[in-house]
């Protein structure tokens, strides 16, 4: 029984670490883009890539390709930038973002099931 309890508590610890404490590495804009454009695939509950980093005051275009037919995936919101877009299915859609100051800007679907962030350094 002790072992089961230890495993259970260990799992709880792992959940806390994996989902909250661990900071995933953001995809560097330099690696991922040509012409300051990055393609984000919207599929299976995740944006790929979900974490993007770029330098301050650089322009960026996000080219979304939505492959998930669920209505939730159809809207992408950038609440801090007051930008939102309806993404068509299986068709690229470009969202041009304004130049951003240093900070972290999240983007997500209407229900916040799809989550992503842009870190401006």
């Amino acid at each position: 029984m002790l072992i089961v309890n230890v495993i259970g508590l260990g799992l709880i610890g792992l959940i806390i670490w994996w989902f909250w404490l661990y900071k995933p590495k953001a995809m560097q804009i330099k690696e991922a883009v040509s012409d300051n454009e990055i393609t984000i695939v919207v599929e299976d509950g995740v944006y790929q890539p979900a974490n993007i980093s770029l330098n301050e005051n650089s322009a960026i275009r996000l080219r979304f390709i939505r492959k998930d037919a669920s209505p939730c995936a159809s809207t992408v919101l950038f609440p801090d930038l007051d930008v939102s877009a309806e993404l068509p299915l299986d068709k690229p859609f470009i969202v041009t973002l304004p130049t951003m100051k240093k900070g972290e800007y999240s983007f997500h679907c209407q229900m916040k099931m799809y989550n992503g962030s842009i870190v401006v350094k």
């Binding site: 995933p24 299976d44 509950g45 995740v46 979900a50």
Partner: peptide, 13 residues
């Protein structure tokens, strides 16, 4: 698939 992909992205839905 959604659960797996979210998991490896450190998110859950």
């Amino acid at each position: 698939i959604g659960a797996y992909k979210s998991f490896i992205n450190h998110s859950a839905n």
